[in-house]
Amino acid sequence: MVASRYTVEEQRQAIWVYLEQTSGELERISLELLSKGRQLADRAGWPLAGLICGHQVRPLAQQALAHGADEVWLADHLLLADFAVETFAQATFAALMQGRPSVFLVGGTPNGRDLAGRLAVRLRTGLNADCTNLRLDPRTGILTSEITGFGGGVLALLEMPNHRPQMATVRPGVFAPADADPGRTGRVIELPLDLSPEILRTGRVKRVVGRGVDLTQASVLVCGGRGVAGDFDMLERLARLLGGEVGATRPPADEGHVERERQVGQTGVVCRPKLAFACGISGASHFVVGIQEADTVVAINTDPEAPIFEFSDYCIVGDASRVVPALVRALQERRGTTHD
């Protein structure tokens, strides 16, 4: 069997988490990893380190310490100002070879997956992808990762006993971020880096923010049917609070309450959001096709016998015009008390 770049004997008993940041802000996933990492580290009695790659990111070190890291490794370089897998993989690889942690966790974001996939091969180690839970055996130091396959139907536990680091990408949103403790302190280690622009092959040609709707990419979808009687403003409010998009069955699109590109289903768009709301929708097959890949479906309908409930995780028998505004109010109240 092929040996990893550093072995079990050469490892250090430490948990490292990769702290993704954008424009000088730690991503939410980074706080989630720190929170779970802290929990694992405490049980094992190991230190928790955060690895930050970027340019002029030193101010983030304190935030990482406050959120649970014992030490922070900084890869600070002009060439790391924007994410590019070539430079980030090189910097991260150098850091790992120096720190040799037993466990290395990365967020399962698009950039995190790009990075982790390359790194695992470069380190000749395994990679447990998109994990939904993690356990660390304090005695053996073995990390067990829980993943789901087959559309969530099968749950597998994975381990890599003989390779290091034990790498995993973690599904965003699974672990709750812990509150910051501004009093926490720790070591900040600056990593000497030797990066040259020649290794960069991929480049960004253009970046556009703001565009037409593309429901296939929406992570939250708030759909309305005949039963919302054309009141798509309330659905829009809910969608906006959840960072999602509004979708519709055919009748509201026919009646011009929403743009045609928001029609979901067999004759519209087939979506795969994390969360889908079906408001005032009976649940005919041609609509259900459009949301059946959703991780979670919530249905609101006045008819307790409506077929949509068969395809839903949470079923609410009631009038969408009363339930949706209640959801909006609850979310607004929540927003009022947090910075989120």
């Binding site: 000749r124 990679l127 749950l155 597998a156 536990l157 994975l158 381990e159 890599m160």
Partner: peptide, 8 residues
């Protein structure tokens, strides 16, 4: 490197 230690 990876082994499946459990399946459910």
């Amino acid at each position: 490197p990876t082994i499946v230690s459990g399946l459910d």
